[in-house]
Amino acid sequence: MTESLVTLDNLTVRFDDRPVVDRVNLNVHRGDIITIIGPNGAGKTTLIKAVLGIQKASGGQVSRQKNLLIGYVPQHLTLETTLPLSVKRFMLLSGRPLPDCESALARTGVGHLLHASVHHLSGGEKQRLLLARALARKPDLLVLDEPAQGVDINGQAALYDLIRQLRDDLNCGVIMISHDLHLVMAATDKVICLNQHICCSGYPADISRDPAFIETFGRPVAESLAVYHHHHNHSHDLHGDVVARGQQGNRSGHEGCDHAHH
């Protein structure tokens, strides 16, 4: 049995007596990648804030492994644009030593941007920077809120592939929020469809045809998105541009990737 990192037992969070998260049960083990999907206002961010310990439960319980280290990747990086800030300085603000910061940046494919301005990074580079900051903590659990926000579709596929690789390398658990089931299908082990309560959960391919999923999202994901996959022998850089194999250098992508097209 793999190691349990976080357990939610009948977790309920209410705002003004209205349940935003209603009696949710969840067990996250080391090695898991769990993706939470759901419509706007479904309580997804509130749920992960409870996992992080920054949102108090109104009912139920959140149990964390003793001395659990969590790396958190927020949905957006909001910085004062008039404040000069390099990638190096931003990473050091995490409190981790420089070698840990440099190693994390290299691992997420943005090591070459150490002295660049944070304000001049692309959407994909910013998301990888946030991921690197979380990795510098050497976490047992990665919690990601819409990690591909602001990244184009090819860059998103590369980012989800990287998250899966990091799970394998670090043997950590991963919880992430996404609204794009078709993009995370290949990168996740389990999907939880949340709409205050858990509507359905299971393997991605099964969830997409679950009656509760169809009731919430309208139709099976394969029909609504006409998803198909193909295999090709090139990669994508952080901007989603095509890079021939063997020509990536410091640019991170994924090889022979599966893409969803619609």
Rank of each mutant, 00 (worst) to 15 (best):
Ser103Glu: 15
Gly53His: 01
Ser63Lys: 15
Ala50Thr: 13
Glu80Tyr: 12
Phe90Ser: 14
Leu69Lys: 15
Ile54Phe: 09
Leu105Gln: 10
Val51Gln: 03
Tyr72Pro: 05
Asp100Tyr: 07
Pro84Val: 12
His76Gln: 15
Val87Glu: 10
Lys44His: 04
Arg64Glu: 05
Thr108His: 03
Lys56Pro: 03
Gln65Thr: 10
Gly53Val: 02
Ser63Val: 14
Leu68Pro: 10
Arg96Val: 14
Ile37Val: 14
Arg96Ser: 13
Pro99Tyr: 11
Asn67Val: 00
Thr78Phe: 01
Gln61Phe: 04
Ser63Leu: 02
Leu113Ala: 13
Pro74Tyr: 07
Ala104Pro: 10
Pro99Ile: 09
Met91Cys: 03
Leu92Tyr: 03
Thr108Tyr: 06
Leu77Glu: 12
Asn67Pro: 02
Gly111Leu: 00
Arg64Ile: 05
Gly71Asn: 07
Ile70Asn: 11
Lys56Asn: 11
Gly31Thr: 13
Ala50Tyr: 01
Gly111Val: 11
Val118Leu: 07
Leu77Asn: 12
Lys49Tyr: 01
Thr45Cys: 10
His112Val: 05
Gln55Trp: 08
Leu52Phe: 04
Leu85Pro: 08
Ala104Gly: 12
Gly38His: 05
Ser94Asp: 04
Pro97Arg: 11
Phe90Asn: 12
Gly43Ala: 13
Asn40Cys: 04
Leu47Gly: 01
Arg107Trp: 03
Glu102Tyr: 06
Val87Pro: 11
Arg64Leu: 03
Thr108Gly: 06
Val87Ser: 09
Gln61Leu: 12
Thr108Ser: 14
Leu92Phe: 04
Gln61Trp: 07
Arg107Ser: 14
Leu68Cys: 06
Lys49Val: 05
His120Tyr: 05
Ser63Cys: 07
Thr45Tyr: 09
Asp100His: 14
Arg89Cys: 06
Leu113Gln: 12
Gly53Gln: 00
Ile48Glu: 02
Gly60Asn: 08
Ile33Leu: 00
Glu80Ser: 14
Ser103Met: 09
Pro74Trp: 05
Asp100Trp: 05
Gly31Phe: 09
Thr45Trp: 08
Ile48His: 00
Glu80Lys: 04
Arg30Thr: 12
Leu83Ala: 08
Leu79Ser: 08
Glu102Ile: 06
Ile48Pro: 00
Lys44Ser: 05
Thr45Phe: 09
Ala42Thr: 04
Gly109Cys: 11
Arg107Asp: 14
Ser63Asn: 13
Leu93Thr: 04
Asn40Thr: 05
Asn67Gln: 15
His115Thr: 14
His112Lys: 11
Ala42Glu: 00
Ser117Met: 04
Leu47Arg: 00
Thr78Trp: 02
Leu114Phe: 12
His115Glu: 15
Lys66Thr: 13
Arg89Lys: 15
Cys101Arg: 10
Ile48Gly: 03
Pro74Gln: 02
Pro74His: 13
Gly53Trp: 00
Gly109Trp: 01
Leu92Gln: 15
Thr108Asp: 04
Leu114Met: 14
Ile48Asn: 04
Glu102Thr: 09
Thr46His: 12
Ile34Trp: 00
Leu77Tyr: 10
Val51Ser: 07
Ile34His: 00
Asn40Asp: 14
Leu52Ile: 03
Val87Thr: 11
Ser86Trp: 06
Ala57Leu: 11
Val62Trp: 12
Pro99Arg: 11
Lys88Cys: 09
Gly59Ser: 12
Ala57Phe: 06
Leu68Ala: 11
Gly59Asn: 06
Gly95Pro: 10
Lys49Gln: 14
Gly38Thr: 12
Ala42Trp: 03
Val62Cys: 09
Asn40Gln: 05
Ser117Phe: 02
Thr46Ser: 15
Gly31Met: 11
Gln75Lys: 13
Val118His: 09
Glu102Arg: 15
